[in-house]
Amino acid sequence: MKKYARAIVSLVFSFIKFSLIKIFHIKNFKFTLFNLVSPFTELEIGRKASITLGRKINIKSGTKIRARSGAEIIIGKNTFINHNCMIVSHKRISIGENVRFGPNTLIYDHDHDYQSENGFKKNLYKTTSVEIGNNVWIGANVVILRGTTIGDNCVVGAGSIIKGNYSSNQTIVQKRETTVFTHK
């Protein structure tokens, strides 16, 4: 019974929250009525930025979705975003349909431009879009960096840090060795 009560609260809360965001970002925020979004989810839309949410999106608590000035975030229908995920765009992040995110997943389409003169001071960034296909499962604690494309029907193993192009129907696992040191 608790599960259904929580779902109803999330539906009502999502509608109210999204309607208020829509008032301030009429053209730049698109959503449908049937989304389950935790009251503890943050959505931030910068100047000339946009966020588009498909139908039946489920977003758990602690998640932060931020479209910075001029950026675009698109999330396809029936996508599940687990607890404490962060999606931050300075250019464009596109997430397909039926995508599942494990907790603590981070997606960034930008890096600090530390090589430019005063790059940190001036908040300069290098940006390249991130594209995630349909029916993708992304494990817990994954970091997806700028310039990454993940094809349809892929699985990304927990704890992976990925950048690059991955074609459809692949399992992406980042293998690491564990080194053990003995203390005297």
Rank of each mutant, 00 (worst) to 15 (best):
R47Y: 11
H90G: 08
L33D: 03
G46E: 10
F29D: 13
C85Y: 02
N35R: 13
K60E: 09
T79K: 07
G96M: 01
T79N: 09
G54V: 03
R68A: 15
I73E: 09
F31P: 14
L33W: 11
A71T: 05
N78V: 01
K64M: 04
N82Q: 04
N84M: 02
H90T: 09
F34V: 06
I45M: 07
I45F: 08
S61A: 07
K91G: 00
G46A: 08
L36F: 15
I81M: 11
T79L: 04
S38E: 04
G62F: 04
R47A: 09
G46F: 08
S50I: 06
K56V: 05
G76P: 07
F40L: 09
R55N: 14
R47G: 08
K91I: 01
I81Q: 14
S50W: 11
T63Y: 05
S50L: 07
T32N: 13
A49S: 10
N82E: 02
T41G: 01
L53P: 10
I93P: 06
H83L: 00
K91D: 06
N82K: 00
G70K: 01
I81G: 08
K60P: 00
L43R: 10
V88Q: 15
E44V: 14
S50H: 09
T41Q: 01
T52Q: 14
E97Q: 01
K56I: 02
I45E: 11
R55D: 12
K30R: 15
C85N: 02
S94F: 05
N82A: 00
I75G: 05
I45S: 09
N84I: 00
S38Y: 01
I87T: 08
S50E: 15
N98S: 01
H83T: 06
I74N: 07
C85G: 04
G76W: 04
N84T: 00
I57S: 09
S38N: 02
K60I: 05
N84S: 03
M86W: 04
K77I: 06
G76F: 07
A49R: 12
I93L: 05
S69K: 12
K60M: 08
I87C: 05
C85V: 02
A49C: 06
S38P: 01
L33I: 08
R68S: 14
E42C: 07
E72D: 13
I57G: 07
A49H: 10
I74A: 11
I87M: 03
K64W: 11
I45W: 08
E42G: 06
E72M: 10
I75E: 11
I57H: 13
L53C: 14
K56P: 09
T79E: 08
K30M: 15
T79A: 07
T63D: 04
